[in-house]
Design a protein around this nucleic acid. Sequence first.
DNA 1: CGCGTGATTGAAATTTATCAAATCGCGTGG
DNA 2: CCACGCGATTTGATAAATTTCAATCACGCG
Lengths: 247, 247
Amino acid sequence: MTALHSLSHRVDCNACPIRHRAVCAKCETDELEQLNRIKFYKTFTAGQVIAIRGEQLDIVASIVAGTASLTRSINDGRVQMIGLLLPSDFIGRPGREAAPYDITAITDVTLCCFHKRPFERLLLEMPHVGERLLEMSLDELDAARDWMLLLGRKTARERIASLLALILKRANLPMDLQGEGCQIDLPITREMMANFLGLTIETVSRQLTGLAKEGIIQIEGKRGIHVPDLSALLAETGDDTDGGVDY
Amino acid sequence: MTALHSLSHRVDCNACPIRHRAVCAKCETDELEQLNRIKFYKTFTAGQVIAIRGEQLDIVASIVAGTASLTRSINDGRVQMIGLLLPSDFIGRPGREAAPYDITAITDVTLCCFHKRPFERLLLEMPHVGERLLEMSLDELDAARDWMLLLGRKTARERIASLLALILKRANLPMDLQGEGCQIDLPITREMMANFLGLTIETVSRQLTGLAKEGIIQIEGKRGIHVPDLSALLAETGDDTDGGVDY
DNA sequence: CGCGTGATTGAAATTTATCAAATCGCGTGG
DNA sequence: CCACGCGATTTGATAAATTTCAATCACGCG
């Protein structure tokens, strides 16, 4: 928190951890300066609600640090996670008043925010931002559609394996060398896994222990998972080749 | 087909049926002229494959007429429809070599195509195209995420009702007045419905007859469905208010 | 040391898929 | 005009997967 707070005023964009991946990735120095002038930081603690579907949301923002979830839900309590926001991901939608989904901080989160109106104006003047936003949106669209295949057609076991593979791929980027075993530190609870996968927590739990019994994974405490043989895990995802979940 | 063929060369963009909804919607006359110079038409007959996931696709295109499906599948035959392309929808992705999903013509389809390289160049010069493409992509993203809720958390009956409601909303725009009953002419087979909803054709069939037995719908032949009371149908979708599937 | 939350396990119920067999709709050829 | 045949759909019986309900376990914390 104190570390987050130290960000709370002016921070040099060039020192920003998401400088080269966020909406500002393509900006030149002068464009960056314009953004810098109107940006402001906001922090949320784990569990806090960032936005509620249907309610007015007049900022847009990039995630600087932390993880947040996008969810949609049905009145009777059913919840479906529809996206995971990691650093550099974008929140909010130029040209729309209300938030289209619920957004909740999973860990402590720091946002680099802009008021929507000024941001929309900049969008028209600075093509680089719009271009980057388009790229990012199309990537998210691909990810959402991949997830539709999982939710519509994969078995519980395949879903679990796919999720683990996805987390490995996202978290452990420099893992090429680890011919022998990878380590996962699950960033989410069983309940969130269930909401992500369209399953119940009991099914998640059972499938995890099932995979463990067959030696495909080893469960280490509540959050730790060890994968001795990545290709064995990928073979369980239901995806075509051993190339796995690539998009 | 002959009608389609008559489009095969130069057509005035101002007479184009999708002029105000497609990527070119925001273009001025001169921009339109630039697009017009490099565009070309292509037609596909019902059932033809337009693109295959993973294979090179070096055009982008707008659907001028007809309907196409986006699908992803698993080697063992499981298929999930991840999108429905209607007139004005956009195909292809600037900045990506391969098609990210399979695209198939459901009905006869006419495309307004551009080679990818020239289109990408225009994209940099003509902000209006990029802006519109961003809007459209964000809308698709919202639709994909709504569908994730359906695939992950809705029951078979709710899925069927949601689909019927969606089709009504899309096809029957001026239906506000029809306090008494709406008519659906299903544009797709049971198999496609099943692939769309993440169900089997048998389950689709059973749920339809179930809804019919309760008087919520009336099945008229293979493709016709009559909805005597829209709100009764919406009540079955599982969505919050009677506002239904609005996003 | 007990409490509480999250996780696991078990048994039964429910939903949906699977396999198999009618039935329907409709165009074709006799 | 009508019988035939084919693909799509419906229906039935059964099986499998997942959910639900209930109980127990594990662990961090005051």
